[in-house]
């Protein structure tokens, strides 16, 4: 475990905590895409299949439980909680995310390390995570102004995989560890999808202005 990997996991954890804070504190999920949350729940469920069979460390197990638990809790909140679901922008969150699931599944059956259930599910979760943010970014562009907590949530979520890329570079030079090219390429695509968001986030931070995404 190196500093970049730890920073990445902590950034990811912070993004989840910021989202939970927003929903709990404001009892609202306005500006949050339910579809992105559903995709992330699927990402964690399909990636952490070996949660109980392949024990790596207490840290690893705890983090997996936190990510699975929080993503399911957020989906449940947005679908079932009486106050929160009222604030869900159903008519704006219209991305056809089922096509993303299908495309990633087909790709995972074609491009994987080994054609085994575990490896196909792992590749599926990696591909799906790379595109899971799309419904959220589309929703932000449609709804124009972004509230602070939502902006911070997306920012930390995007930053975490960037730290993972630094972690893979670090491990390559220090441990001669070659990360799996599927994770590497998907991680680069995933981080690149946030590029324009990061740009507008930086502009709003520099001008101390509200985050505005061009429609």
């Amino acid at each position: 475990m190196n500093i970049f990997r730890f920073a990445g996991d902590m950034t990811h954890l912070i993004s989840v905590l910021v989202l939970l804070l927003k929903i709990y504190a404001t009892k609202s999920c306005s500006g949050i895409s339910l579809k992105t949350q559903e995709l992330y729940a699927l990402v964690f469920l399909s990636r952490y299949l070996d949660l109980f069979t392949n024990y790596i460390s207490l840290y690893n197990t705890l983090m997996k439980l936190v990510f699975i638990g929080s993503s399911l809790a957020i989906v449940w909140c947005m679908r079932m909680h009486h106050a929160v679901k009222r604030s869900y922008d159903k008519e704006v969150d219209t991305f056809r995310h089922y096509y993303l699931v299908l495309a990633c599944f087909v790709l995972a059956t074609l491009v994987n390390e080994q054609f085994t259930l575990r490896e196909v599910c792992w590749a599926f979760s990696i591909y799906l995570e790379a595109v899971a943010i799309l419904p959220q970014l589309v929703l932000l562009q449609r709804s124009g102004n972004v509230d602070n907590l939502t902006g911070q949530y997306v920012f930390f979520l995007g930053a975490y995989r960037a730290f993972y890329i630094l972690n893979w570079i670090y491990r390559y030079f220090t441990e001669q560890y070659f990360t799996r090219w599927i994770a590497c390429i998907a991680g680069i695509v995933q981080t690149a999808l946030y590029a324009d968001f990061f740009y507008y986030y930086f502009i709003s931070w520099k001008n101390n202005a509200k985050l505005q995404l061009p429609a």
Binding site: R5, H12, D50, N54, I56, N60, F67, T179
Partner: peptide, 10 residues
């Protein structure tokens, strides 16, 4: 072993 190594990340 490489197996656990590659799956040691989140």
């Amino acid at each position: 072993n490489p197996e656990s190594q590659s799956h040691d990340e989140l």
